[in-house]
Nucleic acid binder design. Structure first.
Lengths: 359, 359
DNA sequence: AGAGTAATTGCACACGTGTGCAAGCTTTTC
DNA sequence: GAAAAGCTTGCACACGTGTGCAATTACTCT
């Protein structure tokens, strides 16, 4: 108390009860008479006492902190995700310990820093997880969930968009639009998200008999995407449709196409992204893209963690969140298959068939 | 050890030394013979031991955690700031505890959550600080630094851009460009940053004899800025120059001007922002704006905090970071006063005079 | 009223670490 | 070789909390 910090002992002294009684007053469900509770609360109020979370963590072996590791924040999808995660965790009474890592570099040394803080769970966003790290988490019994990435280790939980379905929808959409020469701007080749989107996209095109397919790597960065766009669009026979592994790169590709090369979008080249970040809807871009519902994914990640921390679930669930293909003006529109919902145009070829069947 | 957590006692047992010896091995500058250090480190390595940060925090009364509170992340300036803060704090061996609050709402209840975790310092970004909160921090002896906001309380430290100078430069720049009817799109009126930019901008215009000045409030949101732009530009005599309190709103204003109202920028109306966020440089916008050097500001905030945590400084310093007016294409260019540095055009009327003097 | 039961309370220990203090040991110095 | 000085080391306490256990108190029922 003299040093400015007031402890339960100070409150106990003032209220004329034992320290245990004070502790019980701040422990939901503990046995305290209403009389002592009143006196304790009054004393606590007067002194401005709140139980020390650090001491409580040490005692209970639970810190009520969740480590969130993000690779990079240039892509606005991640700040948005972070904001949702912070809100969700706060609502659950947990605190968010933020770490940043190089997106390609492994985060081994970071992991030591994290484990030392006895966090109750870890959320990894856009970070590739080595099996050694997964093993360490399992040994320390710390639940872990990947966001926007998966891993082969089926024991690790993950929350991703339904990337294969999304990429297939893009392929179908572009085919229906009558495109002939396709290109893909890849993210980091090592990321599962890129792999899922690329392979599903390519497979669908191959099934449709398309042979004109080229790819360039953009490494998820704006500069990488710009270079990729230049290489793609300055070929003798440039593509008439470009699918980018995310919106962040798609916007860069649009800028290069329009302002460096003087191309019209979508008349000369169609461009499709993935994420539906806020700027995709801006009138300067009006990017056609597959949405990745940020708040649903954040909620799923937190739910998965809570299920394993508070309930005793074993983990290893792979949650896939579906997302709509939002049709705007950066890609040529097919004659049919587009429905309008809440003022947004969506690519839903099935629904149209249903509607036709109904008529 | 049976429960999976290994403590210094386990290491001590294995190395055949006392627990204190283990502790000293992990305390820089403690007295340990090289022989025991070797045995301890070997045992620690074998068992995978690292000192429990929670227990250490409790013991030392220092958690090595810094709370960062952000109001909103829609404006990409804040994610960028957050990323820099995270990197800087990590480099100093501190952890970042992230909290989010409503930008207008006070964060009183949040503060209780923060203080409970015994953080060593608090960084507030785009949050208005009530004097009651400042008082609580002082009572708890927790250093506090505001980023991008100031307060009248001269005991509170803050890091901001040199907003008055920046706004004056914008006024001079627009006057030199021959503009006649000026408008300002305000952020939250309660924020010091908005106040400084607005009053300095207006004062300079008044000094120059300008009477045509109107203002609208955009509340720092995209929607607010769009509404403000519509009100401004649909007046009988619309402004020919609009200064926006930040880039986030300036981009929205540009979109409304060009795509809703069919105006040409900068031929019909000049638009200037503040922050120099990444998207301001995108070719779709090429926004003329005053830079707010994110990494310099982050460094200054961390330095200020460290000076008070580790050194024993008293605090109360008001750091103002200067920033250049970056000239792009969203505002009519004056005939003179622009110099090119590292491929960027900057508004430096003084320097030009110097250059002329030299010739 | 008395016995039996339920609720409340305080003691004491545990959580895992850092560190002052004194004792033990090693090295230096005369 | 002995005394002095300097390193190391272990003991024991502190940090602030939660909780099992036993003791005490309050309450209920016959």
């Amino acid at each position: 108390m003299s040093r400015g910090v007031i402890t339960s002992a100070d409150v106990a002294l003032r209220a004329g009860v034992s320290r245990s009684a004070v502790s019980r007053c701040f422990t939901p469900g503990a046995s305290v008479s209403s009389k002592t509770r009143g006196r304790v609360m009054e004393a606590a109020q007067a002194l401005g006492y709140r139980p020390n979370a650090i001491a409580r963590s040490l005692n209970k072996g639970r810190s009520r902190m969740i480590a969130v590791v993000l690779g990079y924040m240039d892509n606005p999808f991640y700040p948005a995700m972070l904001e949702r995660l912070a809100a969700r965790l706060q609502a659950c009474g947990y605190r968010l310990l933020l770490f940043t890592a190089k997106p390609d570099g492994s985060c081994d040394e970071l992991f030591s820093e994290i484990l030392v803080y006895q966090v109750d769970g870890i959320i990894l966003g856009s970070i590739l997880l080595t099996s050694a790290l997964a093993q360490r988490c399992r040994a320390a019994r710390i639940p872990l969930v990947l966001v926007n990435r998966t891993t082969d280790d089926r024991v690790v939980s993950s929350v991703t968009a339904d990337n294969r379905n999304g990429a297939r929808a893009v392929a179908d959409f572009l085919l229906a639009g009558g495109h002939k020469r396709f290109a893909y701007v890849a993210g980091l080749a090592s990321s599962s998200t890129n792999h899922d989107r690329e392979t599903a996209f390519r497979k669908r095109l191959t099934e449709a008999g398309v042979s004109a397919f080229i790819r360039e790597e953009g490494a998820y960065t704006r500069e990488g995407a710009q270079d990729a766009a230049r290489r793609l669009l300055q070929r003798p026979r440039p593509p008439d449709a470009i699918f980018c592994a995310n919106d962040h790169m798609a916007l860069a590709v649009m800028d290069v196409a329009r302002f460096e090369l003087g191309l019209r979008v979508p008349e000369d080249v169609s461009i499709v992204g993935y994420d539906d970040v806020a700027s995709a809807a801006w009138p300067s871009y009006r990017l056609t893209t597959v949405e990745q519902p940020v708040d649903v994914m954040a909620q799923a990640a937190v739910d998965s963690l809570m299920g394993r921390i508070e309930g005793g679930q074993r983990g290893g669930e792979q949650v896939r969140i579906p997302g709509e293909l939002v049709v705007r003006d950066s890609a040529r529109r097919p004659a049919s298959g587009i429905v309008t919902v809440d003022g947004q145009d969506l690519w839903r070829p099935r629904e149209r068939m249903k509607a036709r069947a109904k008529a």
